[in-house]
Design a protein around this nucleic acid. Structure first.
Length: 272
DNA sequence: AACCAGGGGTACC
DNA sequence: GGTACCCATGGT
C-alpha cells in the first residue's frame, strides 16, 4: 500500500475525460486502472489522500509517471487567460484531470476504434479485445491490452466480433504494420511533433483527429489539440469558431481536455 | 425506434 | 486545398 497527497487529482474526472477507456469505477468509490501488464486500485481516503494498492517501487516506476504526478497542473490552470471565460469555467470544474501517459500502441488502436462511436461503445469494443485477446494480469480478472502481433494474427471476422464494423480492416492493417516494426513506438517518440504526426497519418484509419489523440495521450505531446465534434461545438459557441491554440503552444491539449470534459458535463453526458 | 457517435477514405473539383 | 458522400454498429 502506498499513500500520497496529490493535488489536482480526481479519478472520477479522469475516468470520464475520454482520454482513457479502461479505468473502472468500483462500488466502494475506488477506481482500478491498467497499464501494460500491471493494474492498480486507488482509493480516495477521507482525509483527502489517496491509497494505491501497490508497493512504493511500483508506485515510483509505473503509477507516478502514468498519472503524470510530477507535473504541476495548478500552474497550468493559472496560465489560463482571463479573457478565455469558458476555459476558466472548464478548469474550475475539471481541475482534477491529468493527461495520462498511456501506451502508444493502445492509444493508436483505441482511437482508430473511436471514430463514429460513442464513448460507451468504444469502451465495450476495447474491453472485448482485452478480455478475449489480452494476457491475464495475475488473478485480478483483468487482461492487458492485446499486443500488435496478436491483433495482426486475427482474421477479420474475429475482429468484427468486437463490433469494429468498417474499422476492422484499419485495425488489421495497422496491427500488421506495427507487428512488422516492433520498435515503431520508440522510433516515433524521438521525432518532432510535426514528424510524429506525419508518421501516425501513415497508419490506415488515422487522420488528423486520431493522430492528435495518439500524440496527446500516447506520446504525451501536450501541445497537440484534437478537434472532434465536441471541440468544434465548443469553438463555435465560445471562441468565434476557433480556439486560439497559439496562445497555449505547450498546453493546448490539456486545455482541450478540460473543455471537452466540461462541455460533456454541461450536456449531462456522465458515464459510469 | 430513429438518431448520432472523440472521423477517415475516396472521388471528385 | 476544399467539399460531398459512404462507411457498420452500438447506445440512448
Amino acid at each position: 500500500m502506498t499513500i500520497r497527497t496529490i493535488p489536482n487529482f480526481n479519478l472520477r474526472q479522469i475516468a470520464q475525460s475520454g482520454q482513457c477507456f479502461r479505468i473502472k469505477r468500483n462500488a466502494d468509490g475506488s477506481c482500478t486502472a491498467v497499464h501494460h501488464s500491471a493494474c492498480v486500485t486507488i482509493t480516495p481516503l477521507p482525509d483527502g489522500r489517496f491509497a494505491f494498492d501497490c508497493d512504493e517501487a511500483a508506485f515510483d516506476t509505473v503509477w507516478r509517471p502514468y498519472f503524470d504526478l510530477d507535473c504541476d497542473y495548478a500552474a497550468i490552470g493559472k496560465s489560463i487567460k482571463k479573457s478565455h471565460l469558458f476555459l476558466r469555467e472548464a478548469y474550475a470544474a475539471a481541475a482534477g484531470i491529468r493527461i495520462l501517459r498511456q501506451d502508444p500502441w493502445e492509444m493508436l488502436i483505441s482511437f482508430i476504434i473511436s471514430q463514429r462511436k460513442t464513448i460507451p461503445a468504444i469502451r465495450s469494443a476495447v474491453e472485448y479485445l482485452c478480455a478475449h485477446y489480452g494476457a491475464p494480469i495475475g488473478d485480478s480478472g483483468i487482461h492487458a491490452f492485446p499486443d500488435a502481433a496478436t491483433l495482426a494474427s486475427l482474421p477479420l471476422d474475429a475482429l468484427q466480433r468486437a463490433a469494429l464494423g468498417y474499422r476492422a480492416p484499419y485495425i488489421q492493417k495497422t496491427a500488421q504494420m506495427a507487428a512488422a516494426q516492433p520498435a515503431w513506438a520508440a522510433a516515433l517518440a524521438a521525432l518532432s511533433d510535426q514528424d510524429l504526426k506525419q508518421a501516425l497519418l501513415a497508419f490506415p484509419g488515422v487522420g488528423e483527429k486520431v493522430a492528435n489523440c495518439v500524440m496527446l495521450y500516447g506520446f504525451h505531446r501536450v501541445g497537440a489539440f484534437p478537434r472532434d465534434v465536441w471541440v468544434r461545438r465548443i469553438e463555435a459557441a465560445h471562441f468565434r469558431g476557433r480556439f486560439p491554440t497559439r496562445t497555449y503552444p505547450k498546453t493546448a491539449g490539456i486545455m482541450q481536455q478540460y473543455m471537452f470534459y466540461y462541455m460533456r458535463l454541461l450536456e449531462k453526458k456522465e458515464m459510469p
